[in-house]
Design a protein around this nucleic acid. Structure first.
Lengths: 167, 167
DNA sequence: TATTGTTATACTCTATAACTATA
DNA sequence: TATAGTTATAGAGTATAACAATA
């Protein structure tokens, strides 16, 4: 088995030339590193929870999105930030598992709605509760006062209203 | 093209039976959701930065690890939390790009060390600086006092000393 | 003409299992 | 016998391009 790079866009040099050496200060670097650790743990917990239900991360995310209601394939692709062609496969596998079904959209016959089945909805709910693992472990170490402070800081940081989480 | 699920371990039912309905309080849920948003942005920024250099996320992580010095393949697998067989391919592609080279370990002739080339080291450094995108955008909205408070909260939350970040 | 979803194709990451070479 | 690394294989996610159905 060979591992060969097939195509290498000449973006590296361009990126290097465009670079504007930001070089954040020590405090900022430290916060970025800490957030990196948070990201790592959050992801690990999420994937572990999904694996408990024999779901991949992408499948779990789609199921979480469908908990809000039937959703056009296109919109799922937008939320996952991937190409629509990928969503076809992910939903196919969820359909094969009986967790999701495809419905027609009466208003626009081009669109197909992915919808969680009763079992899919149940799985999504249990999966969501499983995220309590993260809340228990690292978050649980913070007293309520600290959790409130953290909430306010994150709110201030993220500020602009964003849609409900898909990750 | 068919998308069929080949094997479905009967873990779902087991997981459902084992579930202990933690049902975190509203404040904790809100913090978890906010952290989810942070995770999403962090990842997007990381992948975008890697893509600027025509690298995948996994390749960028390996390159970041090699910036600390030559590393046995096995150790890379441990850090990436994946099987050693995967590292072979990832390093192969980096070698094909001229960013990494394999060296023999004199002490134990079974191990092979992956080491960043001069160009690889340069790329790793630029990539690291690119994470400033995250520091600039959402983190930049916090005043220094707030960043300091955030740092302290995250420290308290993560507490136990962890190794340098690979993500 | 533009949009939605699918198919076909290729690449990468992933895990499992079998293999070589060292220890 | 145990460990480090590789190879082979298969499933899953990803992007690109081409296509049919509908708007």
């Amino acid at each position: 088995m060979f591992h060969v790079v097939k195509y290498v866009p000449a973006l590296a040099m361009l990126a290097a030339m465009t670079r504007r050496t930001p070089r954040a200060d020590a405090l900022t670097c430290e916060v970025v590193e800490l957030l990196g650790e948070v990201v790592r743990r959050y992801h690990d917990d999420y994937d572990r929870a999904a694996a408990d239900y024999a779901l991949t991360g992408a499948q779990a995310r789609v199921l979480a999105l469908l908990a809000y209601g039937p959703t056009p394939m296109r919109r799922l692709a937008d939320r996952l930030k991937c190409e629509p062609s990928n969503v076809t496969g992910i939903v196919d596998r969820l359909v094969a598992r009986g967790l999701v079904e495809r419905r027609a959209d009466e208003a626009d016959r081009r669109v197909k709605l992915a919808a969680a089945t009763a079992e899919g909805l149940r799985t999504a709910t249990e999966l969501r509760d499983s995220l309590g693992d993260f809340a228990r472990e690292p978050l649980g170490r913070l007293a309520e006062t600290d959790r409130r402070a953290l909430r306010d800081l994150l709110h201030r940081m993220l500020d602009g209203g964003t849609e409900p989480a898909a990750l």
